[in-house]
Structures are given as structure tokens and as C-alpha cells.
Amino acid sequence: MKDKILRELYEKKGQYISGEELSEKYQVSRTAIWKHMNALKKEGYVIETTHKKGYKLIESSGKLIPEALKRDLNTVEIGNKIIYFDTIDSTNNYSKRIAKDAAHGTVIISEEQSGGRGRLGRNWISPKGEGIWMSIVLKPDIPPTEGMKMTQIAAAAVCNAIRGVTGLEAFIKWPNDLVVNGKKVCGILTEMAGELTRIDYLIVGIGINANNESFLEEFQHIATSLAKEKGEKVDRKTLILHLLKEFEGLYEDYINQGTLEKTLAIIRNYSAVLGKSILVIRGEQQLKATVLGIDEEGLLEVKYEDGKRELLMSGEVSIRGEEGYI
């Protein structure tokens, strides 16, 4: 009932809707409507209440409104269904629980994650109402060996979206991080289920520090938010809409053309690592190398101090700058 009332408020945005009208439409008491309105207010929605007029949703609220996303989303498949939570353990975890029956392109978004995860099992801090914590369910007809290319498609899409919406100079730290001014603003976690020759589903998890105001001391030297770098808050809804549109375009191009050409052009153009000296990390081992390029499959070509060259696969290693995050 609360979601139905929220939809009514959004569709009437800028106008009042009376408690009596809602009561009659949904066959509940006006007291029940009042209680649902208070519950929405506690969740962070700004709702104006005026005697004899009723209720009005004030859109200045920073809260994500799923109805607004659905109405304004200009895509065909990606985002065909949006599942929204106020809080959840992890959008990736939930996506895996529903993936078998979920439609291709389903998007899961939460205001908060209590158990967000990054690559290699790292924790991802996901404070309520500050960032973008979302996952996309994909069911592509591609070999499992191609699955990790979704990470690169997502990275390119996020990079274009951040640059287009905020004007900030975002760069891609291969394979799954986005950085602004040398600090991390986004991480991507792709997970896959399937058999030897086919994919059942792919989950692309995206976490963006949009309006985060503070970070734990241990992360302050490597992480930042778009708002901190821009000096003002970012409209999360607009960023999500641009991101999903960019993702669908690059995804469809890859599926139709069979290559990552468009995606890799973005990754190379906005790479944070090309030509730089880095540390290649495998477990406890760290080796110095220079990044030479990114091949047609999205593998990172590096040259070690001993002259040996190697193509790195994203699932095997991590990289970081010699003197910091990048």
C-alpha cells in the first residue's frame, strides 16, 4: 500500500491529493493513509500536508523515487523492470536470489547496503541515501569466457555518465574502478553463474560514491565522492538514467557486433593506467611493471622490469600505483 501511495504522489507531483481520494480508491481508512504518509516521511520523502487540500510530494527530496526512474528511463531492455529497496544486504546478493526467474535487464537499486561487497571479497561501504548502489541482471547468449567483458562495458558506461552529468574528469582504473583526481569514486563487481558452455545469468554490481560526505580513516587517502570533487551534490536520478542508457548502448553494440570496439575506445581514451608504472599484485607477490596497452579482448598488456611482457586477465590480479592507489 505504501508503494501505491508513493506512486500516486509522484504522478500528481506539484499537486495535492486528498486523503479522502486515496481512501476511496484503495478502500482503506483515512487514518491508514495518514499512517502510510508518516512512514514515507520517516523514510526521507518530503511530503507537504495541508488542511482541506491533502498531501503533496516535494521533489527537492534527495530520495530516489522508482516511479520517476521508470517514467524517465530511455532504454529498451536495461531497466525494463526496476526493483527498489530502502535497505538491503547487497543488491548483487538479491540479484542472484532472483536471477533465475528475473527478466534480462532487471535493475535492483537500494538506498543502502548493509553488506556491500567489492572485488576479491573486499567490503564496500554503502551509506544510506548518499551513493548509487545497484545491480543489473543480464542473460546474454555468449560463452562464459566472454562474461567478464561486462565489467568493461560497465566501466565505460559509468565513465561516460559521470563525465556527461557532472563534468568531472573521470578515468578508468583497469579493470573495474573509476577514479577522479586519483581517488576511487566507483567500483564494479561482476558475478556469473552457468555451465561450461553457457551462461545462466550475469550480475553487474555498480557502486558509486555520489554524495558521500565522509569516509572511514583507512579509506580517506584512496576514496572520494563526486560531490566532494564537484563541490556540490549530484542528482543521483539523472546519473542513474544516463548510466543505464550508456550501458545499454555499449552492451547492444557488443552483442550485435561481437567486439568491444566502442567500449575499448572509451577505456583507452580515459584510462588511468596506460603508460604508467604500476604494481601487479598476485596474492602476496608484487611486481613492478609498465602498462603498454589494452588489447582487443580487454586484457592489460604490461612489461616487467626484467623485460618480460604479459597480458593480464582481470580475474587473476590487482593493480595499483607504485606510490598510492593509482
Rank of each mutant, 00 (worst) to 15 (best):
I125R: 00
E146V: 14
V137I: 15
F85I: 12
E316A: 11
K276V: 11
E310K: 07
V280P: 10
L274A: 07
A289C: 13
L226C: 09
L64W: 06
A161I: 06
I153P: 04
I162L: 01
D235V: 05
F171N: 06
K4F: 12
L189A: 06
G283W: 12
S29K: 07
M192L: 12
I78V: 15
T145A: 14
T49M: 00
G147H: 01
E248M: 07
A157W: 03
G321K: 05
R320S: 07
K100R: 15
M1S: 07
D3I: 08
K183S: 13
K100M: 09
V46L: 09
N209E: 10
L138H: 03
E297C: 04
A156P: 06
L22D: 13
A157M: 05
K96S: 09
K35Y: 11
E284Y: 05
W174P: 04
L241D: 14
Q220S: 15
L69R: 00
L6D: 02
A210Q: 01
V158H: 02
S90A: 14
I65V: 14
D306S: 06
Y270I: 08
E24Q: 13
I65D: 00
A154L: 04
Q27A: 14
V158Y: 01
I142P: 08
A99Y: 07
P127T: 08
A103V: 13
E59Q: 09
L299H: 08
I208M: 06
V317Y: 14
S61P: 01
G321M: 10
T151L: 03
G207P: 04
A210E: 02
L22A: 08
L287V: 07
D295K: 01
Y16A: 10
A161N: 03
M313K: 12
I132H: 02
K70Q: 15
I162F: 00
S271H: 03
E112H: 12
I208S: 05
A265K: 01
W34V: 01
M134G: 05
G324I: 11
K4N: 13
R122T: 08
E232K: 05
G307R: 12
E67D: 11
T238Y: 02
Y94A: 10
L22R: 01
I172K: 00
R282T: 13
S271N: 05
S314K: 01
V107A: 04
T75G: 05
V280C: 11
G131Y: 09
S126N: 02
C159W: 00
R163E: 13
V165D: 06
S23K: 02
S271A: 07
Q286Y: 04
D89P: 00
K100Y: 12
Y55P: 14
L9N: 06
Y201D: 15
E261S: 08
K35P: 00
S225Q: 04
N80C: 07
E252A: 08
K228C: 06
A154K: 00
A289E: 10
S95I: 03
